[in-house]
Design a protein around this nucleic acid. Structure first.
Lengths: 226, 226
DNA sequence: CGGCATCCATTTTGATACTG
DNA sequence: CAGTATCAAAATGGATGCCG
């Protein structure tokens, strides 16, 4: 099976040769919030069969973007994690997310899936490093069964699947509310006032939240009906 | 003909629904350095047939990323240009380019195509806005038949196909030398000393060039042979 | 559960011939 | 040139079964 290539000595084309196949960048997106097991990946990506998933992971592993790991106790099950080269794709995924937040996140469509981890990554895409200069804060998001945390540390941020150690703020929020929040279709204040969310902990850190993650104003593309 | 979609309410996935198909991001890449005609596009993208090219352009037009324009006199021929939404994809393409420059630009392979415009975009991907604060300069690159210019203006840069009006610096450079330069496999000074390039104009602006475009140090991915 | 193989219907693509 | 039409080759989606 010969690898298909654009055959261009161009950095963009060579990158797309490696990660431009269908599903590949979404797999990277999943791994950007922490290691995931085979089944986790398949569960997040409806429509991707086990055969193609196995092939994609093998390809990413062979190309040095992903490596197999064994989850720490008590899990002790095999999983996939990004290598440094794989993590280097974060700016690509975040750039795609920023474009989508600006130009493509209208109403959710019937039958469209939603996972809170995607919204967390969407928030990260809007992180404002300048606004975070000199700040340190640990935010935990609890969206029904799933928990994430965002660690802000002087212009940098890390968003990972799982609970935080000693969060400054804990935000408990419903699934739909979180979805709308991360798509700039509502604000955290609205969600709290409407009873869809609650927040506890450091009130000052909470108030800073919407300065740290500045969602873009949605725009509409000129549609061509013809 | 139903459009294939990931069916995820996720900014990254929705963006990939629009531009994730094969060739699409490379078409955007081509248009990022100015409007191009149908034939120009096909010529740059060996392997992309006329049928698929027409389908892709129609799709991009319908989705509001590209619009048909008529080139100004004396050309007066039809061409394709990016809309604001299409230009918004520049950060995506540049992020792909930066990753490729860091992790994927080893030796050119036999039979791999190369167009100077790709290298110009590669340079742009490495533009250092901070180093350019307060500066203004117009650089023209002449690579055999093709000419490009880079207009630096206080932290911003624009790289466009075509000659500049009153360039501060004109760099005339051979095809291979330019290719190696943009892949961080050699420096402009080396190319000039080796006779593969010459530069005229404002010497101070010329010396600033390699501060403005900081190519990343190439790294190698851990290959897995098994 | 993780992972791979197989079979098959459907899409996507690549290449080329053809038309205004 | 710009773009359609056509057909063969490849990639994908989905179901299923196997093995450790």
């Amino acid at each position: 099976m010969e690898q298909r290539t654009y055959n261009q000595y161009c950095a963009t084309a060579r990158t797309l040769d490696l990660v431009g196949d269908r599903w590949t960048l979404l797999l990277i997106r999943e791994l950007l919030t922490g290691p995931k097991r085979f089944g986790d990946l398949q569960h997040s990506l409806r429509g991707l069969g086990t055969g193609l998933l196995a092939a994609r992971m093998k390809h990413l592993e062979r190309e040095g973007l992903v490596r197999k790991v064994t989850l720490p106790p008590p899990a002790r099950t095999p999983a996939y994690a990004l290598t440094p080269a794989g993590e280097g794709l974060e700016p690509v995924v975040l750039a795609l997310a920023r474009w989508g937040l600006t130009w493509a996140m209208d109403e959710p469509r019937e039958q469209e899936a939603f996972h809170p981890g995607w919204a967390v990554l969407g928030l990260k895409a809007c992180f404002d490093a300048e606004a975070a200069a000199g700040l340190r804060a640990l935010y935990e998001f609890r969206v029904e069964e799933e928990v994430f945390h965002a660690r802000v540390d002087d212009g940098a941020v890390e968003t990972v699947h799982g609970p935080a150690q000693h969060p400054d703020v804990v935000i408990t929020i419903g699934r739909e509310a979180f979805r709308d929040l991360a798509a700039s279709r509502s604000t955290l204040a609205e969600a709290i006032n409407g009873g869809a969310a609650s927040a506890s902990g450091d009130q000052q850190a909470l108030r800073r939240l919407h300065h740290l993650f500045r969602l873009p104003a949605p725009r509409t593309r000129p549609a061509r009906t013809s």
